[in-house]
Amino acid sequence: MTTPLPSTAPDYATLDDAALVARVRQGDRNAFGDVLRRCNQRLFRVARGVLRDEGEAEDVVQEAYVHAFARLAHFRGEASLLTWLTRIVLNEAYGRLRKRRPQVAVEHIEEIQMGQGQVLPFPGQAGNDDPAAILARDQARRLLEQAIDRLPEPFRIVFVLREIEDCSVEETAAALGLRGETVKTRLHRARRMLRTDLHEVLAATLTGTFPFLGARCDRISAAVMQRLNALP
Protein backbone atom coordinates (compact mmCIF):
# COMPACT_ATOMS: atom_id res chain seq x y z
CA MET A 1 0.00 0.00 0.00
CA THR A 2 1.38 3.44 -0.99
CA THR A 3 2.09 5.83 1.86
CA PRO A 4 0.32 9.18 1.35
CA LEU A 5 2.60 12.09 0.53
CA PRO A 6 2.77 15.11 2.82
CA SER A 7 0.70 18.04 1.58
CA THR A 8 3.74 20.31 1.39
CA ALA A 9 6.43 19.40 -1.14
CA PRO A 10 9.94 19.23 0.32
CA ASP A 11 13.08 20.92 -0.94
CA TYR A 12 14.05 18.16 -3.36
CA ALA A 13 17.64 19.36 -3.53
CA THR A 14 18.12 18.33 0.10
CA LEU A 15 16.95 14.75 -0.46
CA ASP A 16 19.37 11.90 -1.09
CA ASP A 17 18.79 9.36 -3.86
CA ALA A 18 16.82 6.95 -1.70
CA ALA A 19 14.45 9.64 -0.39
CA LEU A 20 13.96 11.08 -3.86
CA VAL A 21 13.19 7.67 -5.37
CA ALA A 22 10.81 6.93 -2.50
CA ARG A 23 8.81 10.06 -3.28
CA VAL A 24 8.63 9.17 -6.97
CA ARG A 25 7.38 5.68 -6.09
CA GLN A 26 4.70 7.28 -3.93
CA GLY A 27 3.40 9.21 -6.93
CA ASP A 28 5.34 12.47 -6.70
CA ARG A 29 6.30 13.06 -10.34
CA ASN A 30 7.78 16.45 -9.48
CA ALA A 31 10.45 14.56 -7.55
CA PHE A 32 11.41 12.84 -10.81
CA GLY A 33 11.92 16.31 -12.27
CA ASP A 34 14.71 16.79 -9.74
CA VAL A 35 16.24 13.49 -10.85
CA LEU A 36 16.39 14.96 -14.36
CA ARG A 37 18.13 18.10 -13.15
CA ARG A 38 20.69 16.08 -11.19
CA CYS A 39 21.50 13.63 -13.95
CA ASN A 40 20.90 15.39 -17.28
CA GLN A 41 24.44 16.53 -17.99
CA ARG A 42 26.15 13.21 -17.22
CA LEU A 43 23.61 11.19 -19.16
CA PHE A 44 23.70 13.52 -22.17
CA ARG A 45 27.48 13.38 -22.29
CA VAL A 46 27.47 9.59 -22.02
CA ALA A 47 24.90 9.22 -24.81
CA ARG A 48 26.75 11.66 -27.00
CA GLY A 49 30.01 9.90 -26.26
CA VAL A 50 28.55 6.73 -27.75
CA LEU A 51 26.59 8.20 -30.65
CA ARG A 52 28.54 11.36 -31.57
CA ASP A 53 25.28 13.12 -32.41
CA GLU A 54 23.68 15.67 -30.10
CA GLY A 55 20.13 15.31 -31.39
CA GLU A 56 20.22 11.54 -31.16
CA ALA A 57 21.81 11.78 -27.71
CA GLU A 58 18.88 13.91 -26.52
CA ASP A 59 16.44 11.30 -27.85
CA VAL A 60 18.32 8.52 -26.07
CA VAL A 61 18.31 10.38 -22.76
CA GLN A 62 14.57 11.01 -23.01
CA GLU A 63 13.83 7.36 -23.82
CA ALA A 64 16.10 6.21 -21.01
CA TYR A 65 14.29 8.42 -18.48
CA VAL A 66 10.90 7.07 -19.52
CA HIS A 67 12.20 3.49 -19.24
CA ALA A 68 13.77 4.28 -15.87
CA PHE A 69 10.53 5.78 -14.56
CA ALA A 70 8.69 2.60 -15.51
CA ARG A 71 11.37 0.42 -13.88
CA LEU A 72 11.95 2.48 -10.76
CA ALA A 73 10.66 -0.33 -8.58
CA HIS A 74 13.73 -2.31 -9.65
CA PHE A 75 16.15 0.29 -8.31
CA ARG A 76 17.62 -1.30 -5.17
CA GLY A 77 20.26 1.28 -4.32
CA GLU A 78 23.12 -1.19 -4.83
CA ALA A 79 24.70 1.43 -7.08
CA SER A 80 24.04 5.17 -7.08
CA LEU A 81 20.97 6.41 -8.90
CA LEU A 82 23.22 8.15 -11.43
CA THR A 83 25.15 4.93 -12.14
CA TRP A 84 21.89 3.01 -12.53
CA LEU A 85 20.57 5.60 -14.98
CA THR A 86 23.90 5.63 -16.82
CA ARG A 87 23.55 1.92 -17.51
CA ILE A 88 20.06 2.45 -18.91
CA VAL A 89 21.31 5.25 -21.16
CA LEU A 90 24.19 3.08 -22.35
CA ASN A 91 21.85 0.19 -23.16
CA GLU A 92 19.65 2.52 -25.21
CA ALA A 93 22.62 4.15 -26.95
CA TYR A 94 24.34 0.85 -27.75
CA GLY A 95 21.06 -0.51 -29.09
CA ARG A 96 21.01 2.31 -31.61
CA LEU A 97 24.69 1.90 -32.35
CA ARG A 98 24.21 -1.77 -33.22
CA LYS A 99 21.83 -0.73 -35.99
CA ARG A 100 24.66 1.16 -37.67
CA ARG A 101 27.56 -0.23 -39.68
CA PRO A 102 29.76 -2.92 -38.04
CA GLN A 103 32.37 -1.63 -35.65
CA VAL A 104 36.07 -2.49 -35.62
CA ALA A 105 36.90 -4.97 -32.85
CA VAL A 106 38.28 -3.37 -29.70
CA GLU A 107 41.07 -5.94 -29.55
CA HIS A 108 42.21 -4.95 -33.04
CA ILE A 109 42.32 -1.27 -32.12
CA GLU A 110 44.26 -2.01 -28.92
CA GLU A 111 46.75 -4.11 -30.85
CA ILE A 112 47.37 -1.27 -33.30
CA GLN A 113 47.85 1.21 -30.46
CA MET A 114 50.38 -0.90 -28.57
CA GLY A 115 53.67 0.92 -28.42
CA GLN A 116 52.53 4.01 -30.28
CA GLY A 117 53.14 7.50 -28.93
CA GLN A 118 53.25 8.74 -25.38
CA VAL A 119 50.47 9.30 -22.90
CA LEU A 120 48.90 12.72 -23.21
CA PRO A 121 48.57 14.28 -19.75
CA PHE A 122 45.56 16.46 -19.01
CA PRO A 123 46.26 19.12 -16.37
CA GLY A 124 43.56 21.11 -14.60
CA GLN A 125 41.57 23.97 -16.05
CA ALA A 126 43.32 27.32 -16.41
CA GLY A 127 41.92 30.26 -14.51
CA ASN A 128 42.66 33.02 -17.07
CA ASP A 129 39.51 35.13 -17.61
CA ASP A 130 41.01 37.37 -20.31
CA PRO A 131 38.52 37.62 -23.23
CA ALA A 132 41.16 36.59 -25.76
CA ALA A 133 42.06 33.57 -23.66
CA ILE A 134 38.38 32.65 -23.30
CA LEU A 135 37.96 32.81 -27.09
CA ALA A 136 41.09 30.71 -27.60
CA ARG A 137 39.85 28.08 -25.15
CA ASP A 138 36.46 28.00 -26.88
CA GLN A 139 38.16 27.32 -30.21
CA ALA A 140 40.38 24.72 -28.59
CA ARG A 141 37.32 23.11 -27.00
CA ARG A 142 35.73 22.63 -30.40
CA LEU A 143 38.92 21.04 -31.71
CA LEU A 144 39.05 18.80 -28.68
CA GLU A 145 35.43 17.68 -29.14
CA GLN A 146 36.19 16.78 -32.74
CA ALA A 147 39.26 14.78 -31.68
CA ILE A 148 37.27 12.94 -29.01
CA ASP A 149 34.58 12.16 -31.58
CA ARG A 150 37.24 10.47 -33.73
CA LEU A 151 38.16 8.05 -30.95
CA PRO A 152 36.75 4.53 -31.37
CA GLU A 153 33.64 4.24 -29.24
CA PRO A 154 34.96 1.86 -26.50
CA PHE A 155 37.82 4.27 -25.79
CA ARG A 156 35.72 7.39 -26.27
CA ILE A 157 33.13 6.48 -23.65
CA VAL A 158 35.83 5.67 -21.09
CA PHE A 159 37.51 8.98 -21.85
CA VAL A 160 34.23 10.89 -21.46
CA LEU A 161 33.48 9.33 -18.09
CA ARG A 162 36.97 9.53 -16.65
CA GLU A 163 38.30 12.83 -18.01
CA ILE A 164 35.22 14.92 -18.76
CA GLU A 165 32.81 13.67 -16.08
CA ASP A 166 35.67 13.01 -13.62
CA CYS A 167 34.27 9.61 -12.63
CA SER A 168 36.48 7.31 -10.59
CA VAL A 169 37.87 4.11 -12.10
CA GLU A 170 35.44 2.15 -9.94
CA GLU A 171 32.38 4.17 -11.00
CA THR A 172 33.36 3.97 -14.67
CA ALA A 173 33.91 0.23 -14.43
CA ALA A 174 30.54 -0.25 -12.72
CA ALA A 175 28.71 1.83 -15.34
CA LEU A 176 30.33 0.06 -18.29
CA GLY A 177 30.52 -3.44 -16.87
CA LEU A 178 34.32 -3.52 -17.20
CA ARG A 179 37.21 -4.47 -14.94
CA GLY A 180 39.07 -1.58 -13.38
CA GLU A 181 42.25 -2.55 -15.22
CA THR A 182 40.39 -2.44 -18.52
CA VAL A 183 39.19 1.09 -17.75
CA LYS A 184 42.76 2.17 -17.00
CA THR A 185 44.10 0.57 -20.16
CA ARG A 186 41.47 2.09 -22.41
CA LEU A 187 41.96 5.54 -20.92
CA HIS A 188 45.73 5.21 -21.42
CA ARG A 189 45.25 4.32 -25.07
CA ALA A 190 42.59 6.96 -25.65
CA ARG A 191 45.11 9.55 -24.55
CA ARG A 192 47.65 8.10 -26.95
CA MET A 193 45.22 8.38 -29.85
CA LEU A 194 44.41 11.97 -28.96
CA ARG A 195 48.09 12.91 -28.97
CA THR A 196 48.18 12.93 -32.76
CA ASP A 197 45.52 15.69 -32.85
CA LEU A 198 46.11 17.76 -29.76
CA HIS A 199 48.70 19.58 -27.75
CA GLU A 200 48.78 19.56 -23.96
CA VAL A 201 47.50 23.15 -23.72
CA LEU A 202 44.11 22.09 -25.07
CA ALA A 203 43.50 20.18 -21.86
CA ALA A 204 42.43 23.43 -20.14
CA THR A 205 39.10 23.20 -22.02
CA LEU A 206 38.14 19.69 -20.84
CA THR A 207 35.53 20.71 -18.28
CA GLY A 208 33.69 22.71 -20.93
CA THR A 209 33.46 20.05 -23.62
CA PHE A 210 30.02 19.07 -24.92
CA PRO A 211 28.42 21.91 -22.93
CA PHE A 212 25.03 21.08 -21.54
CA LEU A 213 23.36 24.47 -21.82
CA GLY A 214 20.29 25.47 -19.86
CA ALA A 215 18.02 25.42 -22.92
CA ARG A 216 18.89 21.79 -23.71
CA CYS A 217 18.48 20.74 -20.07
CA ASP A 218 15.08 22.46 -19.90
CA ARG A 219 14.00 20.94 -23.22
CA ILE A 220 14.82 17.39 -22.16
CA SER A 221 13.22 17.86 -18.74
CA ALA A 222 10.04 19.36 -20.21
CA ALA A 223 9.72 16.61 -22.82
CA VAL A 224 10.17 13.82 -20.28
CA MET A 225 7.76 15.34 -17.78
CA GLN A 226 5.16 15.88 -20.52
CA ARG A 227 5.40 12.20 -21.44
CA LEU A 228 5.17 11.10 -17.81
CA ASN A 229 2.20 13.34 -17.11
CA ALA A 230 0.38 11.73 -20.03
CA LEU A 231 0.70 8.32 -18.41
CA PRO A 232 -2.44 6.93 -16.69
Rank of each mutant, 00 (worst) to 15 (best):
R37V: 10
E58F: 00
H188C: 01
S168A: 09
Q26Y: 00
A19G: 07
M193D: 02
R101M: 02
A57V: 07
P102F: 04
L51Q: 02
F155W: 09
D197Q: 14
V183A: 07
D218Y: 03
G127W: 09
A230W: 01
L85C: 06
Y94A: 04
L187K: 08
A147I: 00
G117T: 08
A9K: 14
E110N: 08
R48Q: 11
A132F: 10
H108V: 13
L43Y: 02
L194P: 05
L43G: 05
A22S: 13
T3M: 08
V46E: 11
R216L: 09
A47S: 12
V60R: 02
G77R: 04
P154C: 08
I109P: 01
A64H: 04
G208K: 10
G214K: 11
E58K: 08
D197Y: 15
V169S: 04
A70S: 07
T8C: 09
K99N: 08
I109F: 08
L72M: 09
R76C: 01
W84T: 07
H108M: 10
E78P: 00
A222T: 13
R98I: 02
D166F: 09
A18D: 06
A136Q: 15
Q41N: 06
N40L: 08
Q146W: 03
Q146V: 12
E171Y: 02
V61M: 03
P131A: 07
L178K: 09
M1E: 04
V21F: 06
L43S: 05
E92Y: 00
V201K: 12
I148F: 06
P4C: 04
R38W: 01
L144W: 13
R216E: 10
E63D: 12
G127M: 12
L206W: 05
V61G: 03
D149F: 08
F44A: 11
R45P: 00
E107F: 06
F69R: 02
I112S: 06
G115A: 07
A203V: 12
V104T: 14
D130T: 04
V169I: 15
R38P: 09
E110Y: 05
T83S: 09
S7V: 10
R87Q: 14
A73Q: 06
D138H: 11
G49S: 11
A230N: 11
V60M: 03
N229Y: 07
D59K: 02
V61I: 05
R137T: 13
R227W: 00
R100G: 15
R191G: 15
R162C: 11
G214T: 12
A93D: 06
K99I: 00
A136E: 15
E170F: 01
Y94L: 12
A22E: 13
G214A: 13
F44W: 08
I134N: 06
A190E: 07
I88W: 01
D130M: 01
R48N: 13
A147H: 03
L161I: 01
R45K: 15
D138A: 14
E163Q: 14
F44I: 10
A223F: 00
A173K: 01
N30M: 08
T14G: 00
E163P: 03
L20Y: 04
L178C: 10
T196I: 13
A190D: 05
R76M: 06
Y94V: 06
G117Q: 11
R25T: 07
R189E: 08
L231D: 01
R45M: 11
V66L: 14
T86C: 12
V35C: 03
L178S: 04
G117N: 11
F210T: 05
P121G: 01
